[in-house]
Nucleic acid binder design. Sequence first.
DNA 1: AACTCGGGGCA
DNA 2: TGCCCAGAGTT
Length: 216
Amino acid sequence: MENNESCPQRVEKLLNELQSLYPDAACGLNYRTPFELLVATILSAQSTDKKVNQVTARLFAKAATPEQIAALTPEELEEEIRELGLYRHKARYIIAAARAILAEYGGELPKDRAELMTLPGVGRKTANVVLGTAFAIPAFPVDTHVFRVARRLGLAAGRTPLEVEEQLMQLIPENLWIGTHHRLIRHGRLVCTARRPHCPGCALRPYCPTGRQAPA
DNA sequence: AACTCGGGGCA
DNA sequence: TGCCCAGAGTT
């Protein structure tokens, strides 16, 4: 959409409001190392960050490094993460990724998106989270929250996550990419929910084309 | 593009 | 009880 919805002034006000609404752009996942963030992000698929943090608190107390994770049997890891669901896939991915990090990258996570995406269970979104959050390398992860909220806010009209990612990177200053990612997620979870967004009372409503049309 | 994995939280 | 959740891989 090349109408005035995406004019720089509106976008700037939107980003300012988003920052004052969520002053700390912290990652919702708890982690101490880039590898821990990678594991937590794989675990976060289709489950809530709150549960992921409960599980990783226990898991990382037992195994937190690629060496320690790679030494686990699939059954041991499955037992640790079972309550998150999708646990067989996730356990297999995480152990295989740990082994690949040891075998291919000397035990250190690569700081390259294409290389990260060769790791089992690591797609574009997870790779971008690690780059932007753990390595401070400019990246704009697009998950279901970012996809939905960005489109509602009129920041992107793309039909695919990759299109939305490209539109957001073009529209938003590079130094705000990762912070905006975390803030859009928080806003998507608290206010701009998938089912019934809480438009009345939303601080972004004055700048939101969807919110203007929503019932009071 | 559709399908699969999945236990737990919540209405 | 039914719907939904910080995705990625396979067909």
